[in-house]
């Protein structure tokens, strides 16, 4: 019914989308691994980042790929401040409170964007948005290929940061045993905030990679965040290789489900995987035993 070329193209397209999904999931899994909370504001922060890309493009004419340079540190700083001055103090160290605080933040951010930008869907009109690259028999979208490469690079960079630098060591120490980490002189509140900042920085990069081929409206984050939750749960909460492989896998699943089931039912495959993994093996493929 479907020729191998169409299926191959769907798989490759899925992999390219999946890499950006992985980047979004990376921020989520990092925050989970260290703070042991699910950040429900992740999707709303992604929407905010996508609007930021749109604003700098429209107002300053800044190319989305160049926007990575100013937006990544900006979102790092914002994430740092949000964790340090809002989520941390407001939740009194109680896990279910953190859940509610991030939910509240997500509602506030999403609707602030709705109030500011209205519900119109916006796109960027770059001259390379529709360029394609021929790759053997496959036709691939150039901006998505760039997104794929960049997302993989950022994942590797993040992994290096965590495994090779002192900051990374401190983050891993807090993730393992926060009381012990504080005893050896690590400022736990600072490390929490840095981790949250890194999560937001991932979102800024993901937003810059998405915008040349995607659109933004105030509700767009919801669609991504559920996919990101699925990836994080599938790959194992807190696992970086898990997030990368999970992201690629989910990208392919979504692409194939869309091909076989049509657009309106396409997403259901993701949620069914999500529920199944949660019910059968909530620690995921790479997660440690809970």
């Amino acid at each position: 019914m479907y020729s191998p070329a169409i299926i191959a193209e769907a798989v490759v397209n899925g992999l390219m989308t999946g890499a950006v999904y992985a980047l979004i999931a990376l921020g989520l899994t990092l925050v989970y691994g260290v703070l042991h909370i699910i950040n429900f504001a992740h999707g709303a922060l992604l929407t905010a980042a996508m609007f930021a890309v749109w604003v700098v493009y429209e107002a300053l004419g800044l190319d989305p790929y160049l926007a990575i340079l100013p937006l990544t540190p900006l979102f790092f700083g914002m994430g740092y401040a949000v964790q340090r001055f809002v989520i941390g103090p407001a939740s009194h160290g109680n896990d279910s409170n953190i859940l509610l605080v991030t939910l509240g933040l997500s509602i506030a951010i999403e609707n602030a964007l709705l109030a500011g930008f209205r519900s119109d869907t916006r796109t960027l009109n770059t001259d390379y948005g529709f360029q394609i690259v021929e790759f053997g028999p496959l036709l691939l979208s150039k901006p998505r290929l760039i997104g794929f490469g960049a997302a993989i690079s950022v994942t590797v960079l993040l992994w290096l940061l965590l495994s090779r630098t002192d900051t990374g060591k401190a983050i891993r120490a807090v993730a393992k045993e926060k009381f012990g980490a504080s005893l050896v002189g690590i400022d736990v509140a600072h490390v929490y905030a840095v981790t949250f900042g890194l999560g937001c920085a991932c979102l800024a990069v993901a937003a810059c990679l998405l915008m040349p081929t995607f659109y933004v409206n105030p509700r767009i984050g919801q669609a991504f965040v559920l996919v990101a939750f699925t990836i994080v749960v599938l790959g194992g909460m807190g696992s970086i290789p898990g997030a990368l492989l999970g992201g690629l896998f989910i990208g392919v699943v979504e692409s194939l489900c869309g091909l076989f089931l049509g657009d309106s039912l396409g997403q259901i495959g993701i949620f069914l995987i999500f529920i199944l993994v949660l019910l059968v093996r909530p620690t995921g493929m790479f997660g440690a035993k809970a």
């Binding site: 809002v86 407001a90 509610l100 605080v101 939910l103 509240g104 933040l105 997500s106 509602i107 506030a108 951010i109 999403e110 609707n111 602030a112 964007l113 709705l114 109030a115 209205r118 519900s119 105030p218």
Partner: peptide, 13 residues
């Protein structure tokens, strides 16, 4: 649009 829900979110926090 959204201004009331924005207040809801802030209120939850």
């Amino acid at each position: 649009p959204g201004i009331d829900l924005m207040v809801f979110g802030g209120l939850l926090v």
